[in-house]
Amino acid sequence: MNRFFASISILLAVLVGFSSCEKVLDIDLPDAVNGIVFEGYIENGTFPYVLVSRSENYFSPINTAAEAIINALVTPDSVFITVDGVRTAMDKTCLSELSPEEKELALEFLGFESFPDGLDLCLYLKFSMQGEYGKTYRMTAYVEGKEYNAVTTIGQPVELDSLWYKDELPIDSFGSIWCRLSDRVGTDDYYYMWTENLTEGRSMYAIDGSPSFGDRLFQGETIEFNFYQGSNLANDNGNPDAEPWWFREGDTVIVKLGIIDRAVYDFWESVDAASNLNPFSAPTPVWSNFDNGGRGVWAGYATTVDTFVCVLNP
């Protein structure tokens, strides 16, 4: 009888194993509304900048991420930041206007590891302004005759208590960086995580997976969690040896933790939710803190950084 069941099992495994199949489908998508997208950041101690672009049809071809980003860029009529009641115009700055050294620094700052020759990228920034803890910044942009506004706050930073490195995979030397965090009592805090792998020469990226989280589940408590490696489409160097999520023993890593406001948290959570849909999910819209149909985010970050060498505990 056992043999009988065993053979039925094999039959079934074969049947089901071969049963699912897939094919590429040609489909007519609904007409897209080409909205204006902002990606603006201000962090304590650094100058604010914003990229303004337009959303594109979902299937429109992309040669490279850099090219796609540049092709989508829009030149606003003007962009202002208001802080403490003072309104300041931001300056349009293009890569082509920078010296080679400045350009390399700017690209790293923007998260590009390589950038095609002959392309230019223009953004709006204000070198003379620096983000300060506890301040609220309003961005006002005039694009194609429409006004868009968003407000963000750089909160008060939170420091990590301690950091350590832990093996996570059966494969030797792949692991993640663990930390202990004491959440503040009595305030709703929202966090954002980045890492920069100096050993691998990677830029500072938001960690892969879910870089934002809130303290709703551990209000005022001390928790432990881990940092993975970050990446984005624009910097994927296709190194087959690299386990994209994991650090290796010996890596020197800058770990950055930011406090964000609720609207920025909602934006990143919705980006995360929209990118993690299963085929049966209801579609998830991505929020924005811009009014007037603007997409994207104007994000203030109150950050602290630690430089850490990945060494297993003796």
Binding site: V33, R54, E56, Y58, G111, N232, V271, S275
Partner: peptide
């Protein structure tokens, strides 16, 4: 079903915008 209609980049990654439900 609801399908994507548009896309844009944030943080170097693609963000999908859906069409009418």
């Amino acid at each position: 079903m609801t399908v994507p209609a548009a896309r844009y980049f944030v943080n170097g990654n693609i963000v999908t915008e859906y069409g009418d439900r």
